[in-house]
Every structure is written in C-alpha cells, then in structure tokens.
Design a protein around this nucleic acid. Sequence first.
DNA 1: AGCTGTTTAAAACAATCGTTTAAATTGAGG
DNA 2: CCTCAATTTAAACGATTGTTTTAAACAGCT
Lengths: 237, 237
Amino acid sequence: MADSPHNSLQSPLSPHLGVRPNERSNDTRSRILRAAGPVFAARGYDGATVREICSTAGVNIASVGYHFGDKLGLYRQVIHDLRMARAKRFPAPNTDLEKPEETLQALVNTLLARIVTAEESAWETELLMREMQNPTPIFESIVEDVFRPLFDQLTETLRLLVHSELPDHTLQHLAFSTVGQCLYYRVGAKAIQVLIPDQQRQMHYDIESLSQHITAVMLAACNNVSMLQQRPETSGS
Amino acid sequence: MADSPHNSLQSPLSPHLGVRPNERSNDTRSRILRAAGPVFAARGYDGATVREICSTAGVNIASVGYHFGDKLGLYRQVIHDLRMARAKRFPAPNTDLEKPEETLQALVNTLLARIVTAEESAWETELLMREMQNPTPIFESIVEDVFRPLFDQLTETLRLLVHSELPDHTLQHLAFSTVGQCLYYRVGAKAIQVLIPDQQRQMHYDIESLSQHITAVMLAACNNVSMLQQRPETSGS
DNA sequence: AGCTGTTTAAAACAATCGTTTAAATTGAGG
DNA sequence: CCTCAATTTAAACGATTGTTTTAAACAGCT
C-alpha cells in the first residue's frame, strides 16, 4: 500500500532540491496549490469544487486526496502558503521613526496596497475577505498572525499622533476607523462600481489618492482630540 | 392541471383580506418566506438549501416550486420584502435641517443601527452584506434603491459641513470614509471579537459610542479641509 | 531485467442538491 | 354525493458533490 504523504503543513519551498526555490515547480502538488488559490477565492471554500481545481491544474481528481488528505487539508495549505507569501511581499513598515505622520501614511499605503491591488495575487485578499465573513476553523489563527500585528502597530502610531492622553478604547476606535476606511474600497467595491461612473472612478480612485485622503482624515481627527472625548451625558440630574 | 401562482413579485400584505396585515399569516407561502430569510442570510444563496428552508417552515419541499417557481424566485421575493420592511423601519432622516452636524450624526446613527443591530431582523443586514460580496442578479437594483439615496444624502450633508468648495470626488471620498467606518463594525465584527477582549467590547462598542466617535472623526476632517486638498506633486517642472 | 515503493489514471461510490412528477387531499358549488 | 380546481404530499429524477477504489504507469534500486 502507498501511504499518503500529507503529514502536516509543508512549505512550498523545497529547501534542498535542485530546482531553484523561486522557480515554479511543476510537480502535481505545486500545480494543485497554484490552481487552488484563485478557485477558492473566486468561489469560496464551499463553492469551490475539487474537480475544477484539478481541471485547471491539469491533474487527476484523486491527486488532492493523495497529497493533502482531503479538501480541507488542501485549503489549510493554501492559507499557509498565502500567509508566508504576504509576509514577504508586504513587510510591515518599521515604526521607529520619529515622525508618526509618515508611519501612518506608510501603514495606510500598505493596507490599501494589500487590499485593492489588482495584481496577479488579488485572489489572496479575496480569500481573506471570505474568511472574515465565512470563517473556517483557521480564522482565529489568521487574525492573530495577520491582523493583530498591524492593528497593534496602528494603535501605537495613533497614540503618538494624539498629543494628549486618550483611553485605550478611543485609540482602538481610531485604529478601526483607519482600517474601516481602507477596507471599504474592497468590501464596497462592487457598490462603488455602480455608484461612481467609470471615468471618474479611474481618475480619482487609485491607491495614491485614496491613501492620501484617508491619512488626511485620520490626521485631522488626531489633531482635534477634543471632539473625541466622550461628552458626559448632560442629563438634568 | 393546476397552474402555479407565481406570476411576479407580490407584496406580503394582502390588502383586501380579512386577516390584519400586521398579523403573521400562517399559510404555506408566508411560512416559507419567514423561514427563508434567516436561512439565506446564514448560509448564503448557494449554501442555503430548499430542503432546510422547507424543513424549518414545516412545509413540503415542492411548495417552493409551486409558490415561487424556483429557488431564485423565492430569493427575489425575500429581498423584495426585506427592502419594504427596511424602508418602513429605518426611515431616512430628513436633511432640511439648518444644522448639518446633527444631520450627519443622525445619518451615522441610522447607518450603524441598520448595520450592527442584533435584533430579530439581524439576518437582513447579513443578507445585504452577502449581496455585496457575492452579487446575485438583483444586486444592481439593490444599490440603486437602498445605497444610492443614503449615499447622496451623505454627500450633500458633507458639502454643507466643509465651508469651502471641494471637488465632487473629494466629497465622495468623505462619504465613503463615513460609510466605511460604520460598515467595518459589521465586516470586521468577527475579527474585532478576536482582537478586543469581551469585557472591553461590551463597554465601549455600543451603537451610541461608535456613532459619536465616527461623527467626531468626520467633523474633524471637515473642519480641516486644507489637509484634504490634493497637494500637487511638487515636481521640478 | 526484476522488484519495490510511489504517483497517476479512470471509474465508481454514497450523499446531497434543485427540480419534477403523479397521486392524494382539501374545500366550495351544484 | 359528485365535480372540479387549487393545494399539498411523497417519491423519484438527473446532476453534481467529496471521496474511495482498483489498476496502470513511473522512478529508483540491486
């Protein structure tokens, strides 16, 4: 009997083989992984079919069972590889600058670049978005590894920007305001496509313009901290 | 032969029957409609099964084919009823006030109330969110009827708030910033649940606090319009 | 070559989907 | 009671899903 080789999560970089790691390997396993990402992103985990993945990969249907155990095993590996690739492609900007304004600008830029990129790797963001709405068992670890670091960095940067002391939850609200504005250009993309005419959209909705706008909004909010303080309910008592 | 009675979209209010319209009718058609909404919201259009809908409704599987033609016909009717119900429950605040600050506050409040409500009708928002990520053929009409009016009202309110003249696209960006901040507390809700401890979340993440914060951010941005102007690229030419 | 463990191929599996069919039931009018 | 149309029922249909099975092809070794 041939044991299946799907022990655990495995890096796609075969460290000691002759083929250069950056070169796209062409064995069955790699071809499945390359095909699975976009299909999972386009159809969702449930909607994606093993048959379509294997068809676009040009391999047999039984291969996914052999290499990854089952559909969920393949999905786990796709997410695993995705996180590795993202960490290398979008390194978090360092925060040790003395100019928090520039750190904020860089963070917003990174966030938007990750989110609204129309590159070949657009399926990665689509997949993460689907995880947020339809969490699979992997969701929590994704949040801790991907979202938490950026969220913490954002909160600390904002703490430097407001010159007075603010309670933690207000800084968190500010961080969510920043993330929310960025994320909307992905979440609401299909709605924006209906609301804003094509021509206008192509002129003013590039990453550069959007990140500049969002940064300006947040800087304005930070400079007016007085408005952010909860006004105590002025009830008659 | 018994012709199927699924001519076109039909209002759930039977205008001339003895039963009071507000009273929940108990015929097969109504029971299917009441059961379908939450199921569609929880599983998505594709994920929802006619069998589960009919099972929770306590009716036969063939009933949906008889009363609505097919699954999509049922979905259309669910969306139709949803829009009617929302229009009555969340009337858009009137904008003829002379105090645009209060209009903005009211708009944000309405938006957040629609979005993060945990009421019995939470499935309605869930369904609209799913339409934004996985649009069905009905999506465009939803945007025009539901999103466009609120978006226009928001843009005009912001135009009154910035005291100088700004180009249209900047006002649109401001409107999207507002909507984006609100929407994030739904889109990112599952992520927030992981990022923020339960206790802190229950204290500072009610509709009141959030809408006050978002309104403050946007007012600060409007009062600092100078930062919103695109700084022309200071290239040498 | 010949053997052995690994990988792929094609087909079949049971389960579940949306939809359809044909008979049973209901209820009102004659 | 009979008739007839509207509605509900139970069963089945064909299609598609994830997964498994069985045999064939391949690669590495002595």
